[in-house]
Amino acid sequence: MNKYLSSAYQFGTLGGILSLISFGFLAWVQPDPTNLNLIFGYIITPVSIFLALKFFKDYSNNGYLSFAEGMSVGFVTYMLIAIISALGIWIILVLYPDLFEVIKASKIQVMEQSKDTIISQVGEESFQATQKSIQEMASIDIAINDGIWKIVPGLFFTIIISIIFRKNPN
């Protein structure tokens, strides 16, 4: 089993660490690093999955890759990225509560600035519910959101990359 997961462990861990570095750097550069960190996640996640599958295929599996193997290696890779990133962001926000308050205030401000547009699209009731949920937001919510937005594109990219790399020993 370790044969299947060694490259996933390496590149999933690397992707998670890079995501944390990105969050830290972006927090230093601008008040709300969450949106740009998600964009960075859309870059690092497929790159990590690509490298994990490529290394598995070339160095652990004699140049062959079934779709199931690709999905397994990709799953472990993007889950590691999501878990490391989410846990790290949560720890950062717990250690630096001022950063969390700045992020929360930024999200509240964006809601207020876009109030008319949001109400016209989804209605007053939805706007009020969203505003209330942002005001009650905790640091774990930001971390979980980041993790989810590593998993969703991770699954999509794993499917695509597994199909591209698929080569059976027939």
Rank of each mutant, 00 (worst) to 15 (best):
M1Q: 13
K3D: 12
Y4F: 14
S7T: 11
F11T: 03
G12E: 01
G12M: 00
G12R: 00
T13C: 08
L14S: 10
G15Y: 03
G15L: 06
G16A: 01
L18C: 11
S19H: 08
L20S: 04
I21W: 02
I21Q: 04
I21S: 06
I21D: 03
S22Q: 04
F23Q: 03
F23G: 03
G24D: 05
G24Q: 06
G24R: 04
F25Y: 10
L26M: 14
V29Q: 13
Q30S: 12
P31E: 13
N35H: 14
N37K: 07
L38G: 14
L38M: 15
I39P: 09
I39F: 15
F40N: 09
F40M: 12
G41D: 06
I44H: 02
I44A: 02
V47P: 06
I49F: 00
I49H: 01
F50V: 02
F50Y: 14
L51W: 08
L51N: 10
A52E: 01
L53R: 00
L53C: 01
F55C: 08
F55W: 07
K57H: 06
S60Y: 14
N61P: 04
N61I: 00
N62P: 10
L65F: 00
L65V: 00
F67I: 15
A68R: 15
A68G: 09
G74C: 01
G74I: 00
G74A: 01
F75A: 15
A82E: 01
A82N: 02
I83H: 01
I83Q: 01
I84V: 15
S85K: 09
S85W: 04
A86D: 03
A86G: 08
G88F: 04
I89D: 02
I89W: 03
I89M: 09
W90C: 09
I91P: 09
I92H: 08
I92Y: 15
L93S: 02
L93D: 02
L95I: 07
Y96V: 09
P97R: 02
D98L: 12
L99V: 11
F100K: 02
F100H: 03
E101H: 11
V102S: 06
K104P: 06
A105P: 12
K107H: 07
Q109S: 15
Q113M: 13
K115G: 12
D116R: 09
D116W: 08
Q121V: 11
Q121G: 08
Q121E: 11
E124S: 10
E124V: 09
E124M: 13
E124D: 08
S126Q: 15
S126Y: 11
Q128A: 15
Q128E: 14
A129V: 08
T130C: 03
S133Y: 10
S133L: 12
Q135C: 08
Q135E: 13
M137H: 04
S139F: 12
S139D: 08
S139W: 07
S139Y: 09
I140N: 06
D141P: 05
I144Q: 07
I144F: 13
N145L: 15
I148N: 12
W149G: 05
K150G: 03
I151G: 03
P153T: 04
G154W: 00
G154H: 01
L155S: 04
L155T: 06
L155P: 02
L155W: 07
F156Q: 05
F157C: 02
T158H: 02
I160L: 13
I161N: 03
I161K: 04
I163C: 05
I163R: 13
I164W: 08
I164T: 03
F165A: 01
F165T: 01
K167D: 09
N168S: 14
P169A: 11
